[in-house]
Design a protein around this nucleic acid. Structure first.
Lengths: 132, 132
DNA sequence: ATCGCTGTATTATCACGCTATCACACCGAC
DNA sequence: GTCGGTGTGATAGCGTGATAATACAGCGAT
C-alpha cells in the first residue's frame, strides 16, 4: 500500500488521504476486514502529523469505509468496496468536468482539448506503469 | 467581460482572477492597450474585496500581462497576447494531467477514462454555449 | 496487573487566503 | 488649485489547514 501525498496541491492533505484510501479499497488493494496501518505508523510513513491522519480516518469512519477497533487498529468495513468504486467514479468525473469547463470557457476548442487529453493520458499511463 | 469566480474551490480567488484575465487576453476579449475595470469596480462586480483584486492585478503586472497607469487605471500590455495563449495552454494541460494521473493511479482504465472525458466534454460545451 | 500498542481528544501555535478599513500618492478634468 | 477617480500600501481580524505536544482510554500479550 503506497500512497503519494503532495502538499501545497490545493487539495488538503487529509482529503488526499481520504481519496487514496477509497481508491485502494475500490481497487481491491485493501479488502474488507483488513487492518490498515495505525495512525502513528501512517503518519511516520508519509512524514505527516498524526492528527492529520486521524482526521482522514475519522472522515472515512463517518462514511462507513473504515471502522475503528479501539486498541487494535482501524479496519476496512464489510460493504465498503461497492461504495468506494462509486465514490471514485464521482470524484474523478467531477474533477474532470471542472477542468473541461474551465478550458471551454477559456476558449479552447473541442479538437484541441481532445488532443491535449490523448497526450496527457498516454503520459499518465506511462508514468503509472513505471511506478508499478 | 464576464468572469466567474467560485470561492472554496481549492484555487485561491486571486489565482482564479489571474487565470481568467489571461484567458480573456488569449481569446482577444481583452486587447493590448485596453483599460480594464479598476480595482474597485472589479471588486464590486464580483463582490470581492479590493485587496484580493489588487493582488491579482499585481501578479499580472509581474508577469507583464498588465501595466498600471497610476491615476488612470490598468491596461493590457502590448506583447501580452502571445504569452497568454501559451500560459493558458500550459495551465490547462497541467490541470488535465493532474486529474488523469490521479485517475490512472486510482485504477481507472483507459477506456473508462475516455468515456468519462467525452461525456464531460459534451456537458462542458453545452453549458458553455448556454452562457454565451 | 503491567506494558505496549492502539484510537481519541484537547490545546496551542503557525501559515495563508480573504475580508475590512483606512490612509496616501498620482493623474485628469473642471 | 481642487475634486474625484485611480493605484498602492498598511494594519487588523477571521477561518482553516497543518503541525506540535500532551493526555486519556481501550485492547492484547506477557
Amino acid at each position: 500500500m503506497q500512497l503519494s501525498i503532495e502538499p501545497n496541491n490545493g487539495i488538503p492533505i487529509y482529503e488526499q488521504l481520504v481519496r487514496q484510501i477509497k481508491y485502494a479499497v475500490a481497487e481491491g488493494i485493501l479488502v474488507p476486514g483488513q487492518v490498515i496501518p495505525s495512525v502513528r505508523d501512517m503518519a511516520k510513513q508519509l512524514t505527516l502529523n498524526p492528527n492529520t491522519v486521524q482526521r482522514a480516518y475519522f472522515q472515512l469512519q463517518n462514511e462507513e469505509v473504515l471502522q475503528s477497533l479501539r486498541g487494535r487498529g482501524v479496519a476496512v468495513c464489510e460493504g465498503a468496496k461497492k461504495q468506494c468504486v462509486a465514490d471514485r467514479q464521482q470524484i474523478l468525473a467531477e474533477r474532470l468536468a471542472a477542468v473541461l469547463d474551465e478550458a471551454i470557457r477559456g476558449g479552447l476548442d473541442e479538437d484541441r482539448l481532445r488532443s491535449m487529453f490523448e497526450k496527457a493520458l498516454k503520459n499518465a499511463i506511462r508514468t503509472g506503469e513505471k511506478q508499478s
